[in-house]
Computed example of a mutant assay.
Amino acid sequence: MSTTTGESAISGACCCPMAASKLTKREYETLAAFRFSLRQFLRFSEEAAKSEGTTPQQYLALLAIKGYPGREWATVGELAERLQVQHHSAVGLVDRLAGEGMVSREPLRMTGGRCSSASRREGRSCWASLRLSIASNSGALGRSCAGSSGC
């Protein structure tokens, strides 16, 4: 199999668990289009974070803290869950953010644990720049979902 650009084509045959579900060609196309749009958005977000002098992981942590439901702080455990990382990885990330003045760590009276807040001036400044840049690009993901029978 070849394409007009001279590249070799990859066959769609696979032995993955999804193949057993008998998805239609249109459903595979929809999933592939969504995954492509999602990856484009993620890459754009990663590049925007780097251009603001922060890492993609730090951006995601700031987003998770700032966007935590009902409050503007999160425990390290909640942050680990939101980022889908191990607890010790979230601790290290919060330590780095706190060291850069982007978050503060405060004790929780109820449990003796620690929480993180993205209310520090440096964190707010970084967040404001990233928010504008990424918000302008997130519409593309929504348009992609709408154009592919919804996601």
Rank of each mutant, 00 (worst) to 15 (best):
residue 121 R to K: 11
residue 125 S to I: 15
residue 98 A to S: 07
residue 89 S to A: 14
residue 148 S to A: 15
residue 36 F to M: 07
residue 83 L to H: 01
residue 35 R to H: 10
residue 129 S to H: 09
residue 5 T to E: 06
residue 127 W to Y: 15
residue 3 T to L: 15
residue 61 A to E: 00
residue 77 G to L: 10
residue 56 P to Q: 04
residue 137 N to P: 00
residue 84 Q to A: 11
residue 33 A to V: 06
residue 129 S to A: 07
residue 34 F to A: 11
residue 25 K to N: 03
residue 50 K to I: 07
residue 15 C to V: 10
residue 108 L to A: 08
residue 63 L to C: 07
residue 91 V to I: 15
residue 31 L to E: 04
residue 3 T to Q: 11
residue 109 R to G: 06
residue 25 K to Y: 07
residue 112 G to C: 08
residue 98 A to N: 06
residue 128 A to H: 08
residue 146 A to T: 12
residue 9 A to E: 08
residue 78 E to Y: 04
residue 57 Q to H: 08
residue 129 S to G: 13
residue 28 Y to K: 06
residue 50 K to H: 04
residue 108 L to G: 02
residue 21 S to W: 14
residue 106 E to T: 15
residue 102 M to C: 01
residue 128 A to N: 14
residue 148 S to V: 15
residue 106 E to H: 12
residue 97 L to Q: 03
residue 61 A to L: 01
residue 83 L to A: 02
residue 115 C to K: 15
residue 94 V to W: 05
residue 76 V to K: 02
residue 100 E to R: 07
residue 79 L to D: 00
residue 44 F to R: 04
residue 46 E to H: 05
residue 149 S to A: 13
residue 4 T to W: 12
residue 89 S to V: 15
residue 49 A to F: 04
residue 140 A to E: 06
residue 149 S to R: 07
residue 90 A to W: 05
residue 133 S to T: 14
residue 7 E to H: 09
residue 48 A to W: 03
residue 33 A to N: 09
residue 22 K to I: 13
residue 57 Q to E: 15
residue 143 R to F: 03
residue 100 E to N: 09
residue 146 A to Y: 12
residue 20 A to P: 05
residue 56 P to L: 00
residue 9 A to T: 08
residue 81 E to C: 05
residue 29 E to S: 09
residue 97 L to Y: 01
residue 56 P to M: 01
residue 137 N to W: 09
residue 26 R to F: 13
residue 137 N to T: 11
residue 147 G to V: 01
residue 96 R to T: 14
residue 84 Q to V: 13
residue 117 S to C: 04
residue 143 R to V: 11
residue 102 M to E: 04
residue 112 G to N: 07
residue 96 R to K: 14
residue 129 S to V: 02
residue 55 T to A: 05
residue 76 V to M: 05
residue 6 G to M: 02
residue 132 L to E: 12
residue 118 A to K: 00
residue 3 T to H: 10
residue 56 P to F: 01
residue 104 S to I: 11
residue 107 P to G: 03
residue 63 L to A: 09
residue 124 R to S: 00
residue 21 S to E: 15
residue 5 T to H: 09
residue 144 S to M: 05
residue 108 L to V: 15
residue 68 Y to I: 01
residue 88 H to G: 02
residue 50 K to C: 06
residue 126 C to W: 06
residue 31 L to W: 08
residue 121 R to V: 12
residue 143 R to I: 06
residue 120 R to H: 08
residue 62 L to V: 12
residue 147 G to H: 06
residue 34 F to V: 14
residue 122 E to D: 12
residue 132 L to Q: 11
residue 138 S to H: 09
residue 1 M to P: 10
residue 116 S to F: 04
residue 45 S to H: 01
residue 141 L to M: 10
residue 69 P to Y: 03
residue 23 L to D: 00
residue 135 A to L: 14
residue 49 A to R: 03
residue 91 V to H: 07
residue 16 C to Q: 07
residue 93 L to N: 04
residue 28 Y to C: 05
residue 39 R to P: 00
residue 116 S to R: 00
residue 72 E to D: 12
residue 107 P to N: 00
